[in-house]
Design a protein around this nucleic acid. Structure first.
Lengths: 237, 237
DNA sequence: TACCTGTATACTGTATACAATTTTCACTCC
DNA sequence: GGAGTGAAAATTGTATACAGTATACAGGTA
């Protein structure tokens, strides 16, 4: 996707939002582009990023690229060594473990916080999503299932009322986006998730915040097991 | 502190580390400087940062300042609106609440993880630190107490073996550094902390990871109450 | 061969220049 | 007086230029 296309899309998507988006920033586009290149394997782990070359490849100058690199560094996509440049970070099992340990704690917390002020409407929404998931599981549509599944989790992350919590979680899962998607191709993964979601919903219905927290944490760690299973499969294959 | 002084200091401190530090980066120095200016009130909440002016004040160009601004944005010190620049973020009670909720979860997690492989030597170290704290409490040395107190918490955050967890916690507490320091001037705060630390140490001794997690979380939330108490005191004063 | 060493090259860090946008403010009109 | 208007000033976004550092490699030495 060219920068111009990106601009038009951004404008279309955010038409009613603040006019901030009317003029997208190169640094944001570049960050998106580089993340994409890493996800698609166009930039391989361990590969050194030459600012001059990448900037010219993207048709921009080094300045916005450098600002994007700073962002991608804090997001964990790149490792920057002063005066030697940025290299694409490899995600090891250790990294995945670290991320999931934190994710379990954060999502669990969000469930506990959200449970405090969840009402019938919220519960209904979660049930709706889970019903959709059942349908998508029957169709075996991995991509749509993945997206809807994320909506389920997003729901209480947002409902927690803790904006930082939501952002931190987003930043974490972005790093393992592809692995998570892959993990849903595992046999029985759909059903497993749906069943656990049901238990989580019941905990919300009972207004049992502690239980909701525990179940959500366990649910995350199940995701961890799925991801590592898949990771080992692909590494040996 | 001038940039040259900073360079010399950095070199002295990191003499044995990678030679990376031999040539400090302006963007890092600038980030430190701006954080400091915010902490010291030289840059006030809500104040707009004019890149041109600040850069010339610091005696550098806009490029490294801009890169530092990106960093400070992700750290939560600044709020950047595209094409309108950066403003110093105000820390509201809501922010403090968000930060402490997350901090409690993260530190609790680190205690649980650390408890798994804590040995006698680790416990001894924690006891040592707590003894030091008792002495400093008698001397009523707030600054030294604060530093030593942080060492106590750092110990199991590091021992968790989860590097990201440690980094994320650092990034969080940096935002409330001054508030936390202030909170230690509250009557009875020292004793309260020392006593809770003792209970935490006992949990580690019993190898009760769940208990350690709970106690550490509670300890963090006690810190939260202290900070908000102090915050209200100063706002009304 | 293995190990320096100096130089050429490539690359990053920083400064500056230019372009595009936002803000300011005097001015007009109602 | 207040809302709207338009040009000037200020400010951010982006590109480019330059300086200093790291890397690669050729040639020399033990």
């Amino acid at each position: 996707m060219s920068y111009k296309t990106y601009v038009i899309l951004k404008m279309a998507i955010n038409l009613e939002e603040q006019k901030i988006r009317e003029h997208p920033l190169l640094r944001e586009w570049v960050a998106d582009a580089v993340r994409d290149m890493i996800a698609k394997g166009k930039l391989k782990p361990g590969e050194h990023i030459c600012e001059t070359r990448l900037a010219s490849e993207l048709g921009i100058s080094r300045t916005p690229l450098r600002e994007a690199i700073r962002l991608l560094e804090t997001e964990g996509f790149l490792h920057v060594v002063p005066r030697r440049g940025a290299v694409v970070r490899d995600i090891s099992i250790k990294d995945v473990t670290e991320i999931y340990e934190i994710k379990a704690a954060l999502e669990g917390l969000s469930a506990r916080l959200a449970a405090r002020h969840f009402n019938k409407k919220d519960i209904e929404r979660l049930k709706e999503i889970n019903n959709e998931l059942t349908k998508l599981a029957e169709k075996n549509d991995v991509n749509k299932f993945f997206k809807m599944h994320n909506q389920f989790h997003d729901y209480f992350l947002r409902a927690s009322g803790n904006e930082r919590l939501y952002q931190m979680n987003c930043s974490l899962i972005e790093q393992i986006h592809r692995l998570r998607l892959l993990s849903f191709t595992l046999e029985g993964r759909f059903e497993e998730a749906i069943e656990q979601h049901e238990r989580i919903i019941k905990a919300f219905e009972k207004r049992d915040a502690e239980l909701a927290e525990r179940l959500v944490s366990e649910n995350v760690m199940m995701g961890y097991r799925a991801v590592t299973t898949k990771l080992k499969q692909t590494k040996t294959a």
